[in-house]
Amino acid sequence: MLLNYVVLTLLLCFSLGPLLILGFNSLKGNLEIGRNPLGPPRQVRWSNYPEAWIRGSFATTLSNSLIITSGTIVGVLLIAGLAAYALSRLEFRGTPVIMFYLLVAGSLPFQLFLVPLFFLWHRLGLVNTRIGLIIIYWAIFSPFATLLLRSYMMALPRELDDAARVDGANEWQVFSRVVLPASTPGFLTVGLVSGLSSWNEFLFSLTFLHDSSLKTVITSYYAFVDRFSVNWGLTAAGGVMMILPIIVIFLLLQRKFIEGFASGGLKA
């Protein structure tokens, strides 16, 4: 038993140690990092934070990311919720084909459709617009979300919606008044997973948003690290500002996080 704890603690240091060093470095001046790049700061320097906030234009990029992430969550929940209802409650011939597509969509390389998509978005004037990126996220996150919501809705007892149908409710009413409220936990999980995935997404936001006033916090940080590569105090402070909100949400909603992401591996 003791051996278990020794090995697990070593692995815990491996996981968290680098994050701790990032926290240390965010409080050091450049001179101190040169002398002491790994240990705790001897002289705490808070000014890295406001400086990184301004130089990294975090106010702009955070609000871009917030807009894009909320737009993604709302759209994915709507798109996947409607589709999951059809696939779990309405019997029709297309179900196997659509299920097959949803499973395949998760393992398609982005490079397969990226180039023609860029061309198409260019034509439609959607390159360098937030909505253009949001629509892409709707498409790439909705297959997994649909599968997850469908398995959630399949587990709900049918008596409730049968009773509503007997009372003369149409499909939209059964969906919005019976199945939707009963699936709230499933929607929360899906919202969390697609929200974090869009917040962290790199490849599409790098490709489709070039204007620095539109960049997300992720691609802007990528450029920021490049520009201030010698000033680790500044880049570390920027990094901490980016991961701290995620860590807080992660700790508050850890069960939902783990349930949602672990099922991504199992059910997709």
């Binding site: 691609t219 990528y222 980016m242």
Partner: peptide, 8 residues
């Protein structure tokens, strides 16, 4: 935790 943090 590292799994949920951004790659950049």
């Amino acid at each position: 935790l590292p799994y949920v943090l951004p790659s950049v």
